[in-house]
Write a protein that binds this DNA or RNA. Sequence first.
DNA 1: CAGTATCCCCCCAGATACTG
DNA 2: CAGTATCTGGGGGGATACTG
Lengths: 121, 121
Amino acid sequence: MSGSGPIRLFSFEIIGRKWKYDMLCHLTQGKKRMSEKKRLMPNITRKMLAQQLRELENDGMINRSAYEQVPPKVEYELSEYGQSLERILNALCDWGAAHIERVYGEPLSVLEDSILNEQFK
Amino acid sequence: MSGSGPIRLFSFEIIGRKWKYDMLCHLTQGKKRMSEKKRLMPNITRKMLAQQLRELENDGMINRSAYEQVPPKVEYELSEYGQSLERILNALCDWGAAHIERVYGEPLSVLEDSILNEQFK
DNA sequence: CAGTATCCCCCCAGATACTG
DNA sequence: CAGTATCTGGGGGGATACTG
């Protein structure tokens, strides 16, 4: 593989922004409404959530489907193309779980969510 | 797997900063001197190179060995722990290569490095 | 060659308020 | 519920110059 730096900066744009990796991972579990995503990611703001979902949509990673009703209902899901990242995403997530245990020195199950959330307010 | 947002933000710190993913990938090919890394990543500044190498070292991802000589010679390599990321890193890099071809609509081999580098000045 | 030390700018992301 | 608009700051990262 040749001079590949820019390649990585390219894919960095897809998963490297603060919330995108996390957002994509949640979608590997299936369709999610915006409100669900907000609940899954307590520290993200509405603005960033909407903004980065748009970017992922423009990059072809996710599909957005809006139901015309009141109150509105919108669902997001991994596109077929987005699914090509699924295995990697999950592998990275598993590594992250192991890593956090290494850092804190105890199993994830023992760590309070609140402690972790505190880190990234 | 339970509430895992913070887990991802945690591992995001390891590979998510602008240059780290790229830096780690180069090290999967073997030991590299600082000057080699600079050559491999033309657009990074000396400051960022040194700084992020330090952070990766502190996170236990890489080993640094300095030879006491003039002129100085320093080599960096993936630590044993760092190698646990190797498969994922390579998979992500392959995905990135495919992605860039999709974006530009032609095989990577045809694309000039200069065009890609231009993107990320 | 392999780093530090400064200075500085841009823009990512947060806070808040408003709309259909 | 699912967004958008506006304002703001903090810090990540660039440029440049200097050192062992």
